[in-house]
Design a protein around this nucleic acid. Structure first.
Lengths: 231, 231
DNA sequence: GTCTATATCGGGATAGAC
DNA sequence: GTCTATCCCGATATAGAC
């Protein structure tokens, strides 16, 4: 029941590493074969071509996130917990596979050029799960009404950016020893959840963001606009 | 004083377009030459190689953002206005050059492989300008103390992600006509500023995010953990 | 400064033996 | 299923005429 990993799985594992390191274009079939300790021809024996291999990997990654978030939606947790669990689940998958943030950003920045409809649907599913949480929370009075697309990007954007930028943070640290980018993901995660909950809080009592923004604008009018605000 | 754009500028303009569309690897020197209505050899006449051309463009882009944010730091606006102006300036540059978000994400996801130290320093400068605003605000009691790295990614992440993902949003919309991703950038920008100000607000009175998170956790403990929280 | 033609090579994909 | 050898195209970069 537990046969050792056959060549197909060896290829998948090697491909994951290479794609994560270099993106779809940057990764070479030769390098994947070398890493898998096989030869190129074996890759074409198991997969139609490079793109098919890539898609199989991407679909697997995002399917994991979608399924976990679907379980959270289906659970009986109260909405704020669901939101926290959603973030936890996404982050756990990203930390389990450090290539996830890079791949996601590369694909997004590439206009999803390589993504086929099934894979796109999986990604859409992740968003829909978040939206379900937001709607349930709104119906229960736990969240104020928000645009789910905005909320999705406000959560996923920092999550992916922070992780994918790890190498850059290291580079910059080496550049200027004074800078301290020794941020751990735990602190980042904590902030992300706090910020999300705070933004979603129904505006009772305290000045909400909108009010603060209005206040800021009013104060600003009394000042000169010497900062090149030419929008 | 205003001679018509010479071949060098034509190349730069064409290169910007091609790099934005395809990234560093994906863009070809042939395509750049074609778009500039010149031939390949001219590119190598003006620039050492493809990488030098790319770097010149990237440095220009980020320099614009850094200089505008530096002017904001130096202004006499109160800190909350400075923060709003910082976001406005970054967004204005990104909207003026739609390739900025894609290029930034591609480079980040690529581990800043092509970035030389001078360019990295420019990017670091943008961060330092934001940090200066946060520190001034904290000193003035307008902001609570926060980790500047976290704040930077929480602002820049969504900003870049949302814009870079525009083609993907369009693809998904076509996939499922029910979905409405017709978000305009203005609404997104408004949300981003509100969220940032809200997160930075000194915790007086109303339940801050941290308190809400603690409350959420406490409530969660009384529930079953049936959602795969294996972190 | 601007062009055409070409050297050169890396990398995706396949043929065909075992 | 696994291998070696090879085809072949696309892309960077250069040579050299005008």
């Amino acid at each position: 029941m537990k046969r050792p990993p056959d060549s197909r799985e060896a290829i998948l594992a090697a491909a994951v590493a290479e794609f994560a390191l270099h993106g779809f274009r940057g990764a070479t079939v030769d390098a994947i074969a070398r890493r898998a300790r096989l030869n190129k021809a074996m890759i074409y024996y198991h997969f139609d071509d490079k793109l098919a291999l890539y898609l199989e990997i991407l679909r697997g990654v995002f399917t994991a996130v979608r399924d976990r978030s679907a379980a959270i939606v289906a659970s009986t947790l109260p909405p704020p917990q669901k939101l926290v669990a959603f973030i936890d689940a996404f982050e756990a998958e990203a930390d389990k596979r450090p290539y996830l943030p890079r791949l996601m950003m590369l694909e997004i920045a590439d206009g999803a050029r390589h993504l086929d409809p099934p894979t796109l649907r999986v990604m859409l599913g992740i968003f829909q799960n978040l939206r379900a949480i937001l709607e349930e929370g709104r119906a229960a009075g736990a969240f104020r009404p928000v645009n789910p697309v905005v909320t999705y990007f406000s959560i996923v954007g920092p999550m992916m950016f922070f992780r994918a930028a790890a190498p850059v943070r290291a580079l910059v640290s080496r550049l200027d020893i004074e800078e301290d980018f020794g941020m751990d993901t735990a602190a980042f995660s904590k902030h992300l959840k706090e910020a999300a909950l705070q933004t979603l809080a129904p505006s009772v009592g305290a000045p909400a963001g909108a009010a603060r923004l209005r206040a800021a604008r009013a104060r600003g009018k009394r000042r000169a606009t010497q900062t090149g605000d030419r929008t």
